[in-house]
Simulated assay, not measured.
Amino acid sequence: MDTEQRLRDAAEKLALTLSQGGMQKTTARVMTALLYTEQESMTAADLRDQLAISSGAVSAAVKQLIPLGLIERVPAPGSRRDHYRFRRGAWASLMSQQNAILQVMVAAAEEGLDAAGDEGATARRLHEMKDFYAYMAEQLVPLIDTWREKYAAQHG
């Protein structure tokens, strides 16, 4: 089996895993196609042809992936088509977005505690929830910053 086919197989395997985790299957396939390609960028037509999906499906996937910071639209001199590539730093950006979710969970726990008070089983569970998510939010930002510094030092 050649390298290109092995990369496509690996991409499909990851896409299946991501879709089992809740990402729409087509979105996962577009993301992994851009992650595993040896091309610098791909057009919507490239993605459509490689994945055997409709242009509308590619468009919908792109509309989901760009705001997440996983892919980006890039200029291609001499081409009138949009080109997309997997974004450098995408993983750290994606994880940074999780911080907002952590803050939402802290706020939800605080709202529950306001309603439940500080005593009882509900309060005990909500305090644990609040403390856990507050701790994770506190640790996430410096962890991502440290990773970015380490990566930049190793890879320039």
Results as ranks from 00 to 15, higher is better:
residue 96 S to N: 12
residue 116 A to Q: 00
residue 119 E to K: 14
residue 150 K to Y: 07
residue 7 L to Y: 14
residue 8 R to Q: 14
residue 9 D to G: 05
residue 18 L to M: 03
residue 104 V to I: 11
residue 72 E to R: 02
residue 48 R to Y: 01
residue 128 E to N: 04
residue 127 H to Q: 05
residue 148 R to S: 03
residue 66 I to R: 07
residue 21 G to K: 15
residue 120 G to L: 04
residue 52 A to R: 11
residue 57 A to T: 06
residue 38 E to M: 12
residue 114 D to W: 12
residue 98 Q to Y: 13
residue 33 A to E: 04
residue 35 L to H: 10
residue 16 L to V: 09
residue 94 L to R: 01
residue 137 A to G: 03
residue 32 T to W: 06
residue 14 L to P: 05
residue 123 A to L: 00
residue 98 Q to C: 14
residue 132 F to D: 14
residue 2 D to G: 10
residue 44 A to E: 05
residue 49 D to K: 04
residue 9 D to V: 09
residue 101 I to S: 09
residue 53 I to Y: 05
residue 109 A to Q: 04
residue 36 Y to S: 00
residue 109 A to I: 00
residue 33 A to C: 01
residue 127 H to E: 08
residue 87 R to P: 05
residue 136 M to N: 10
residue 26 T to P: 11
residue 30 V to D: 01
residue 40 E to M: 11
residue 113 L to F: 00
residue 152 A to M: 07
residue 140 L to F: 05
residue 55 S to I: 06
residue 94 L to G: 06
residue 151 Y to G: 09
residue 53 I to M: 05
residue 93 S to P: 12
residue 22 G to S: 05
residue 5 Q to D: 06
residue 99 N to A: 09
residue 54 S to E: 06
residue 108 A to G: 04
residue 153 A to V: 03
residue 138 E to T: 14
residue 2 D to K: 02
residue 57 A to C: 02
residue 88 R to T: 13
residue 3 T to S: 11
residue 91 W to C: 12
residue 139 Q to S: 04
residue 66 I to L: 12
residue 5 Q to S: 07
residue 85 R to Y: 06
residue 116 A to Y: 03
residue 119 E to M: 12
residue 123 A to E: 10
residue 41 S to Y: 05
residue 126 L to M: 01
residue 18 L to R: 06
residue 5 Q to I: 14
residue 123 A to P: 02
residue 4 E to A: 09
residue 148 R to W: 09
residue 50 Q to C: 10
residue 83 H to S: 03
residue 12 E to M: 13
residue 87 R to E: 07
residue 142 P to D: 04
residue 6 R to E: 10
residue 95 M to K: 07
residue 36 Y to L: 02
residue 139 Q to C: 02
residue 130 K to D: 08
residue 33 A to T: 07
residue 102 L to W: 13
residue 135 Y to Q: 14
residue 59 S to V: 12
residue 24 Q to T: 06
residue 92 A to N: 05
residue 86 F to I: 08
residue 90 A to I: 08
residue 89 G to C: 02
residue 26 T to G: 02
residue 138 E to M: 14
residue 148 R to F: 03
residue 89 G to D: 04
residue 156 G to A: 05
residue 99 N to H: 14
